[in-house]
Design a protein around this nucleic acid. Sequence first.
DNA 1: ATGTGTTCCTGTCCGC
DNA 2: TGCGGACAGGAACACA
Length: 283
Amino acid sequence: MPELPEVGTVRRGLVPVLEGCMIARAETRRPDLRRPLPERFAERLAGARVNRLGRRSKYLLADLDTGETLVVHLGMSGRVLVSGAALGGFHHAHAAPGQHDHVLIETAAGVRITYNDPRRFGLMDLWPTDRIEAHPLLAGLGPEPLGNAFGPGPLAAGLAGRRMPVKAALLDQRVVAGLGNIYAAEALHRAGIAPWRPAGRIAAPRVAALAAAIRTVLAEAIDAGGSSLRDYRRTDGELGYFQHAFRVYDRAGQPCPAPGCGGSIRRTVQAGRSTFHCPRCQR
DNA sequence: ATGTGTTCCTGTCCGC
DNA sequence: TGCGGACAGGAACACA
């Protein structure tokens, strides 16, 4: 579910209530998500101050003053909701946890952060902050698409020699970190590249256009607060609205929005994932 | 080494 | 209305 813009939006919502704040209490309502939660997870969080809340690819990273970093991935259906902020000294009661509320974190200021994940494809881990780049899930990640380490050159290098469809290559987090099914399809449409084209067989100018399209579509989606289809919500429970700006994703049979194109959006399946594209203007 | 298929889990939607 | 099957923002893993 959440790709880079959604995780970035969650981070934006959490920064004001978490960064610089103390975790007063944590509660795990089951022992595992996709994999077991860390040993003594709640105890290791309680009393810790959050020095900084960052994001790497689709991971949230909360640096604690205990020397550990809390690593959170939302999987397909993970949500983070903020509630119960103390306003003017008035603390209102927290709602009873719901069925898929798996982890609760409460700050010293009376804010509750609820991690909800029906499918439990998400994960949480604790890892030494000074070695966070060596975390097994982070070590192999490619460049951040919005950072200086990404551009036409790095993208071309990541795609070079690969015969798999470029759409599948964009989902490989080693090539570029943070793209998922929506934004890979949207970036390819903006760049006019067909999703089944072999990744290593795209001319340099078109790879450059793709790198630019990746950056712009992600930046626009972040501005829109991400895309809400089914599960995703912002931390205040509101919807993102970038789904209204989709040009191909989930638009099978609808007209291609490219000016003067007149094509019709098609849905196909690649590597087990739905792909949407316009056969007319994507080559 | 690369690339594809399967799997984890729950919820929703659609056709019969 | 019930039931089965397809499908869903991810990605690790087993395999050809």
